[in-house]
Structures are given as C-alpha cells and as structure tokens.
C-alpha cells in the first residue's frame, strides 16, 4: 500500500488521465467537463466540471474533452451512438437526479442494443454521476437512484466508497465493453485515502471485506461504508464484533461474498443510502433469505433512507441519511 493520499475526486481525475493516455478512443463529454476556459488565449481558467473533478483534462486532451449544452438526453444519446460506433465515451451526468431527463438512451438504447441486435453491437459507455445526499442539495440533487440502473438488464452499476477503489473501478468501467453507471456519492467524493500510483483496475462483481468480524455482517456500499465502519467501531467497544462488506459493484453483484459473510456471522444488516422500496437493501435481503436461510440466526435487517424525498434543512437531511446510530440500533434488535 502506498502512503500517497488523494481524495476520491482526485483519484477519479487521475483515472481519467490514465484512461485517456492509454486509449485514444476515450473521450469525455458533458456539461462543463472542460468548463469554459481560455478560447482566445486570454487568461481565464476552466472549471473542470461543477465540482472540479475533470479539471486539467481539457489541457491535456484538448480534442477529446467536450463541453456540451445542458441537454442530458442529447449527451447520453450521443454518447451511446458514439460508443456503438467505435469511441469509448465517458459521459458526465452532473447529478444522478438528472436521470429523469435522459433515461431513454440508457434504458432503451445502451442497455438493449447488444441483445436486440443479436450480439452484434457493443456499447462501451461510462456514465459518471454524482449521487446521494449530504450537501444540503435537497430533493432534486441528492437522490441515490442506483437501484433504477441496477435493475435494468444490460447496464452495470458500480459505486466506490474510497479513493483507491474509485480509481480502479473507474478504469475498469471505461475499459468494460458494456455500459457502466459509475456513481460518485457526495459524502465520499472528498474523502481522502491512500491511492496506488499507476494503472490498475478493480474488477467488477468483487465485494471487499473492509473490516473482519464474527457476530454480525454489515453490508454496505458507497457512502454507507463509512457509516458501517463507524458503527462497527462502536459495536466493538460494546463487545459485538461486526464484519463490514463493501459491495463496490451492484450489478454484477458478488452474491458469493454476501453469502460467505452471512454464513460466517449468521446475522446481516444491510445499509443503503437510497429509499427502501424496490432497492438494493431489499434485493440483498431477499438473496440472504432465499439462499442463506440455513445460516441465518436472526432476521435480516435493512437500514435505509425513509420513503420520502431528500429534505433541505440540515437537521432533516441528517435524519434522512443512514447513520451509525441507526445501524447500531438495528444490530441491537437482533439480540
């Protein structure tokens, strides 16, 4: 492991640099991904995306970083067409909430071309998108909608919880020949952590045990990994040994890792930042009951956001998001 620490945002930026250096077919397009900057040799600087994640890329790859109009359907639809004909686009959907403005190109085009065409098409598209609550961005800029993309056959959906995984998962996403939704949870984006130098990939469908334990399994992903680790720390102080599994990839899903930790501890709490209905937590819970029933010593618990929009006021937003307290309370209900 390296000593070098980067934020998730910086790790993503580094992955994009590597992907573009190693493959001339990789392009970036989206709203503000270049973000203005000098056109006539004057001294203004570019934004590099609304959160500055793509800053510097347009200088390194001036022909391959494309600012678009605010036209999500045009951006994603064009990226699908470009991917199907030989480019490897990385499209930015500024916030995952904007999925509502560009669902068709993902749902009916990217996800289905290969199948509908009898295997003749490939759509190597990556859609980077900022998801989740935690910035007081309120109801239309804070949703975790990965349950929608995970439920669409033909798409893959991944979500890192730390900078090292963010870099490796993004490189895998860009090099994958399938359309991949790469979620960037807000509360993770500026988390700092060690990031290996150089070019490496984190494979999809491989969950990772981020803390070993023996009494209960906390299954988390994206923003909730930190929450689960905090809970595990405090549970340990009270004599409960919690294992924390970071799913990293929602489709494909590492069912084996889920069932393995279940078999080890006999108890499962799934922590999901999204709303509860038809979600990842319910999906994983169903898997545990369906295929791990013989190893379960307790009911399967889910800690999720409530079935309501994301509120603005900080106190309400905090109450909305899964917390270590709620995870600990869920674990307490098991005994």
């Amino acid at each position: 492991m390296t000593d070098r620490k980067l934020s998730v945002a910086a790790a993503i930026n580094e992955a994009l640099h590597i992907a573009m250096q190693t493959d001339p077919d990789v392009i970036l397009l989206g709203e503000d991904v270049a973000g203005g900057g000098a056109r006539d040799g004057d001294d203004v600087d570019e934004m590099g995306g609304v959160l500055g994640v793509t800053k510097g890329l347009v200088k390194a790859f001036p022909d391959r970083v494309l600012d678009t109009p605010i036209s999500e359907m045009g951006i994603i639809g064009t990226a699908v067409g470009a991917a199907a004909t030989g480019l490897r686009p990385v499209a930015e959907l500024m916030f995952m909430d904007f999925l509502g403005t560009c669902l068709d190109p993902l749902l009916n085009q990217a996800a289905k071309l290969r199948y509908m065409f009898g295997g003749k098409a490939r759509v190597p598209l990556t859609v980077r998108t900022v998801s989740g609550a935690g910035m007081q961005a309120a109801a239309q800029h804070s949703q975790s909608l990965y349950w929608i993309t995970t439920g669409i056959p033909g798409l893959k959906t991944v979500i890192p919880s730390n900078p090292a995984d963010a870099k490796g998962l993004l490189l895998s996403a860009i090099r994958d020949d399938n359309p991949v939704i790469f979620c960037e949870p807000k509360t993770v984006l500026y988390a700092s952590g060690p990031v290996p130098e150089g070019d490496y990939e984190v494979p999809f469908g491989k969950a990772k045990i981020v803390r070993e334990g023996s009494d209960v399994s906390l299954i988390a992903f994206g923003a909730t990994v930190r929450v689960a680790l905090q809970a595990a720390e405090r549970l340990a102080a009270d004599g409960t040994s919690a294992e924390v599994l970071d799913l990293r990839s929602l489709q494909p899903l590492d069912e084996e890792a889920i069932l393995t930790t279940l078999a080890k501890t006999g108890s499962v709490v799934i922590v999901d930042e999204a709303t509860p209905r038809c979600g990842i937590a319910s999906d994983v819970a169903a898997l545990c009951v369906d295929q791990g029933f013989d190893h379960l010593n307790t009911p399967v618990k889910r800690v999720t956001a409530p079935h309501c929009p994301v509120p603005f006021a900080k106190v309400l937003e905090d109450a909305y998001m899964p917390s270590a307290e709620r995870v600990i309370a869920a674990v307490a209900e098991l005994s």
Binding site: T78, V80, G81
Partner: peptide, 8 residues
C-alpha cells in the same frame, strides 16, 4: 442522438 453519436 445515436446517429449524432455515430457522426461524432
């Protein structure tokens, strides 16, 4: 948009 992407 697919044709637009092919043109890109």
């Amino acid at each position: 948009p697919l044709a637009t992407g092919a043109a890109l």
